[in-house]
Amino acid sequence: MRRLSKASAGLILAVALGLAGCSAQYRVHGYVPPEEDLQQIVPGVDTRASVEDVVGVPSTAGVQDDSGFYYVESQVRSFAWQRPEVVDRTVLAITFDGAGVVENIVTYGLEDGQVVPLTRRVTKSGDGNIGFIRQLFGNIGGFSASDLLNN
């Protein structure tokens, strides 16, 4: 049996680590309740409180009139230097009627449409593209001596 030299062993280790670093990494974000938990929810009977007890607090709730609970789970693939890519997304929507009773339970996936980026939107200020110096000196000439003396 022949022994490997230190240089050969180091080269094999470097190649193995390099190949391991090039494998895709998958991360799961969010939560969608399992099907067996969803089977316990009865439309027309269960309420918001009972849904929270059975499947947990939702990722997000309906903006208008608290119309529904939404549970979102995304699987993201990262590979080497490439930008992370959403490879699977599941959205579970539980809608309620005006009395807060479960109306419907629907599950959506990527096959139902496009990937919707889940990001926070930030409202930009009304200043537009006015630079700092322009803002700083913008009020020069806007005052008169009488404005200052009429205190």
Rank of each mutant, 00 (worst) to 15 (best):
R2S: 07
L4G: 07
S5W: 05
S5G: 15
K6Q: 09
K6R: 10
A7K: 14
S8C: 14
S8T: 15
S8G: 11
I12N: 01
A14L: 05
V15D: 07
G18P: 15
G18D: 13
L19I: 10
L19Q: 01
L19H: 02
C22T: 11
S23V: 15
A24Y: 08
A24W: 00
Q25L: 12
R27H: 14
R27C: 04
V28Q: 14
H29S: 06
G30D: 05
Y31N: 02
E35N: 14
E35H: 13
D37A: 07
Q39D: 15
Q40A: 11
I41G: 06
P43E: 01
G44M: 06
V45A: 05
R48I: 03
A49T: 13
S50I: 05
S50K: 01
E52L: 09
D53G: 07
D53F: 11
V54E: 05
V57G: 07
V57W: 14
S59F: 01
A61C: 09
G62R: 10
G62P: 10
D65Q: 06
S67G: 12
G68F: 05
G68I: 04
Y70T: 06
Y71M: 08
Y71D: 04
E73G: 00
S74T: 09
Q75R: 14
V76Q: 02
F79D: 15
W81E: 06
W81P: 04
W81Y: 12
R83Q: 12
V87A: 07
D88T: 04
R89Q: 15
T90S: 12
T90D: 14
V91W: 03
V91L: 00
L92D: 13
I94G: 11
I94P: 11
T95I: 03
F96I: 02
G98E: 03
G100L: 00
V101G: 00
V102G: 04
V102Q: 05
V102I: 08
G109V: 02
G109Q: 04
D112Q: 06
D112A: 06
G113C: 08
Q114C: 10
Q114A: 10
Q114T: 15
V115H: 08
L118H: 08
R121S: 11
R121W: 06
R121V: 13
K124M: 11
K124R: 07
S125H: 11
S125R: 11
G128D: 00
G128F: 03
I130S: 05
R134I: 06
F137W: 14
F137D: 04
G138C: 00
N139M: 02
G141E: 03
G142P: 01
G142T: 09
F143I: 13
S144M: 03
L148P: 00
N150H: 13
N150I: 06
N151P: 01
N151W: 04
